[in-house]
Design a protein around this nucleic acid. Structure first.
Length: 289
DNA sequence: AACACCGCCTGAGCGC
DNA sequence: TGCGCTCAGGCGGTGT
């Protein structure tokens, strides 16, 4: 379940293999996981996926990330957006892959870039340029969660009755947060996930924005969270899962106060929080993380 | 308009 | 051991 820190770890481990490298041959085994888009008279139109739209022959200039999505950008401008969904993985290997669920692979001089995704919640989207990708596929995404700003977040949450947990999972509010880091950030900010967005005081929004940045920064520093099968592009595991305060710990004692952590469904997601550290009413003094 | 909810999809983990 | 059930969840589409 790659969220921002896992996707960023993949990006960083891919950079040394790919930047300045030519993709000499593309093999798309499952065309149904790919969409190709182009601009015609200012409108986005779907076009057939070809080796060329999948960057064949291009030299990688950079790998970018917005939220949980990656973009490979070729020197000639072509851009390829990759989303991993639930079970997707993007890896680098020297030998050709022989695993099931490899949907696309790119050969380079020294090895293979491999996209695999058993559940197929992820996919590939191709564009003639990074600008086009940003205008189309990334247009509805909020600010990247790594640079969560209190002012912007306050504006996004103002007046909304939905639980703050639901807003954090909404990629148009902040891009990159999934179930793990929503729960971790709320615990760090000492805010109950059930709180209506509109009920948060401005000090709490500030605390929440700081907690989001902190949790994500620290997870990246530990290579992300490996729960079942997440690996970075070189096959390395993350170890932030051992530092989770609440995610996956329902019924276990809170590391902060010792009370048993509460688990419930919020926004159709299993949500874990400490009803003592994260009360349903604003804390008198919002602690700074 | 804003939000709730469904369904896609496979593998891990569990009880029997 | 092996079978069938449940659960995990990002996200686009549809319903309220």
């Amino acid at each position: 379940m790659p969220e921002l820190p896992e996707v960023e770890s993949i990006r960083r481990t891919l950079l040394p293999h790919l930047v300045g490298t030519r993709l000499t041959r593309v093999t798309l085994r499952r065309p149904d996981i790919c969409e190709s888009w182009t601009l015609r008279k200012g409108l986005f139109v779907s076009t057939p996926t070809t080796p060329s739209t999948l960057l064949q022959g291009g030299v990688i200039a950079d790998i970018l990330r917005h939220g949980k999505q990656l973009a490979l950008v070729a020197r000639d401008g072509r851009a390829l957006c990759i989303t991993l969904g639930m079970s997707g993985h993007l890896g680098w290997q020297v030998t050709p892959p022989d695993r099931p669920h490899v949907h696309c692979l790119w050969k380079t001089r020294d090895g293979y870039l491999v996209f695999e995704d058993p559940r197929r919640f992820g996919g590939l989207w191709t564009y003639p340029s990074l600008d086009a990708l940003r205008q189309h596929r990334w247009a509805a995404l909020g600010l990247d969660a790594l640079s969560a700003k209190p002012g912007t977040l306050a504006h996004q949450l103002a007046g909304s009755a939905r639980p703050v947990k639901a807003a954090l999972l909404d990629q148009s509010v902040l891009a990159g947060i999934g179930n793990i880091y929503a729960d971790e950030a709320l615990h760090r900010a000492r805010i109950a996930p059930t709180r209506p967005c509109g009920s948060l005081a401005s000090t709490e929004v500030r605390t929440l924005a700081a907690a989001i940045r902190w949790v994500i920064r620290h997870s990246i520093a530990h290579g992300g969270s490996t729960l079942r099968d997440y690996r970075n592009a070189d096959g390395g595991k993350g170890n932030y899962q051992s530092r989770h305060a609440v995610y996956g710990r329902g019924g276990q004692p809170c590391h902060t106060c010792g009370q048993h952590l509460h688990a419930a469904q919020i926004a159709q997601r299993t949500t874990v929080w400490c009803t003592s550290c994260q009360p349903n009413t604003p804390l008198p003094i919002a602690p700074s993380p």
